[in-house]
């Protein structure tokens, strides 16, 4: 059984239909990439899955439960975390406070402390700056904080929206290494990226979105060699 199964979801912004019936699956342990141009509906898809936007139609099955009608704040504790586009860290709170908020739904203090140590090990720079306000961090550090914050809920699956956006090539490399590590640690990853080349390189499978529809899907490595993909998304 797929861990996450999206079935024919449709999403509207007012009268404009942003998602025109999308279906896809994510299996446990996979890294799935959603790629496509600006405005294709990638971010909307992720926001719909985590309950930030309500779909007009369709089902979102997470481990067999339809979460489309569950209030957004209850989805985290089911084991799904979302690293939103633009990081959205709490600028006026410290790095430590941001990470603690990531574990907001968890009750066991010892386990939370354990996860915090693990996040600090994966992101040593966050530990160095734990008392600094998140708003004073650099873009790359904020991205790491947003990822670390998501991991604090100990998710089974992490949805990441454009984690490499606006970062220097070295930092992009670092962020993708971290995604690889997160995946190696047993967490399933659903990745939205404009940097299609990088995304396809670490993904198992990929879906290509165009104006609210999935136009292509398949093995990520095969897509890297697909001529039409190369032309449209890889800039070759």
């Amino acid at each position: 059984m797929a861990m996450l199964e999206i079935k024919d979801i449709e999403v509207y912004y007012g009268v404009i239909q942003a998602i025109k019936g999308i279906s896809f699956t994510v299996n446990e342990g996979e890294v799935i990439a959603l790629i496509g141009a600006n405005g294709a509906g990638k971010t909307t898809t992720l926001q719909t899955i985590t309950g930030m936007i309500a779909p007009a139609a369709g089902e979102i099955l997470f481990e067999g439960t339809d979460i489309a009608k569950i209030p957004g704040h209850k989805i985290v504790s089911m084991g799904m975390a979302h690293v939103p586009e633009g990081r959205r860290v709490f600028a006026e709170l410290s790095v430590y406070e941001n990470l603690k908020l990531g574990a907001y739904t968890r009750k066991d203090k010892n386990e939370v402390a354990e996860t915090l140590e693990r996040v600090y090990r994966s992101f040593p720079r966050l530990k160095e700056r734990k008392n600094q306000l998140a708003g004073t961090l650099s873009g790359g550090e904020q991205q790491m904080l947003a990822m670390g914050r998501a991991l604090m809920s100990k998710p089974k699956i992490v949805l990441m929206d454009e984690p490499s956006m606006g970062l220097s090539p070295i930092l992009v490399e670092e962020i993708f290494n971290i995604i690889r590590e997160i995946s190696a640690g047993g967490t399933t990853v659903l990745l939205v990226e404009q940097n299609a080349k990088k995304a396809l390189a670490i993904a198992d499978r990929a879906y290509v979105l165009e104006t609210g529809k999935i136009v292509l899907s398949g093995d990520a490595k095969e897509m890297l060699n697909n001529d039409s993909i190369k032309k449209a998304y890889l800039g070759e």
Partner: peptide, 24 residues
């Protein structure tokens, strides 16, 4: 307190707070 931190989170960014599991 957790509720206090949730208040600060909501005051800064409602959507992000909800993604943390805060009932806005």
């Amino acid at each position: 307190t957790k509720a206090g931190q949730a208040m600060l989170a909501v005051s800064e960014d409602k959507d992000a707070a909800q993604l943390m599991g805060v009932n806005v």
